[in-house]
Simulated scan of single mutants.
Amino acid sequence: MSDLFEITYINPGVTSFTRSAGGMLQMETSGDLFAEITIRRTYPMSRPYEYLSVWTKDDKEIGIIRNIKELDDESREALVAELKLRYVIPAVTQIISIKAEPGLWTFQVKTDRGDLQLLMRNIHEHIQSIGVNRLIITDMEGKRCEIKDTESLDAASRKQLSKVI
């Protein structure tokens, strides 16, 4: 027997997102107010502003927003701000070094949020290619950073990266 799942899409014409007096994101739709909601990306890398999942504070899904562009300006701004808070991924601006030691790789990088050290056992399990020249690097502890465009890195950084890619 197969389980059937019904997806509830949120109607952007009768929905608004705002911040409460306490700063919590809230949603009003068809006269119903949902206080303290969270937004989760269903496709965080390929469609960061499409198919956004809206959840209650009790961890129950309310529904899916097909595309943030369908919402009014105030709602769109509230969601973009919330997503930036929830999905912080430092952008690599420079690779200082990539070193291999027995059983461990160490990346020293500069990001738009400061210096970062990443430790990995099997480097190829921790580097994910997202499109052309874009990489997500996740270390053993779950720390992540992004190289938005490998070609935009300085020559020394590209040389360091060429050791492993």
Rank of each mutant, 00 (worst) to 15 (best):
M1C: 04
M1Y: 11
S2N: 09
Y9N: 00
Y9I: 07
Y9S: 00
P12V: 01
T15Q: 12
R19H: 11
A21Y: 14
A21I: 14
G22T: 09
G22V: 00
G23E: 06
G23N: 04
G23L: 08
Q26E: 15
M27P: 01
M27S: 03
T29L: 06
E36V: 00
I37P: 14
T38E: 14
R40D: 12
R40L: 12
R41P: 09
T42R: 15
Y43Q: 14
Y43G: 12
Y43V: 08
Y43E: 14
P44R: 12
P44V: 07
P44C: 09
S46I: 09
P48N: 06
P48S: 06
Y49G: 10
E50P: 01
Y51N: 07
L52E: 05
S53H: 04
V54I: 15
W55P: 13
T56F: 13
T56Q: 13
K57S: 04
D59N: 10
D59H: 09
K60L: 06
E61C: 13
E61P: 00
I62S: 09
I62K: 06
I62C: 08
I68Y: 12
E70M: 12
E74N: 11
E74H: 13
S75M: 11
E77I: 11
A78I: 03
V80C: 10
E82W: 11
L83H: 12
Y87Q: 10
V88M: 09
V88H: 09
I89M: 14
A91D: 10
A91H: 11
V92G: 00
Q94L: 00
I95N: 03
A100L: 15
A100K: 12
A100G: 04
E101G: 06
P102H: 05
W105I: 06
W105K: 04
T106L: 11
T106W: 02
T106G: 03
T106E: 15
Q108I: 02
K110G: 00
T111E: 02
T111N: 07
D112F: 10
R113K: 09
G114M: 04
G114Y: 02
L116R: 12
L116V: 00
Q117I: 07
L118D: 03
L118H: 05
L119H: 07
M120K: 02
N122D: 11
N122C: 03
N122L: 09
N122R: 15
N122E: 14
I123K: 10
I123M: 07
H124W: 07
H124N: 12
H126V: 02
Q128M: 09
S129A: 13
S129F: 14
I130F: 14
V132T: 04
N133A: 05
N133D: 12
I137F: 00
D139M: 03
M140P: 01
E141V: 03
G142H: 01
G142P: 03
G142F: 01
R144S: 03
C145M: 05
E146G: 01
K148A: 13
T150C: 07
E151I: 03
L153I: 08
L153F: 03
D154H: 03
A155Y: 05
A155C: 02
S157H: 02
S157Y: 01
R158V: 04
R158E: 07
R158D: 05
S162N: 13
S162A: 06
S162K: 07
K163G: 00
K163F: 08
K163P: 01
V164G: 02
V164A: 01
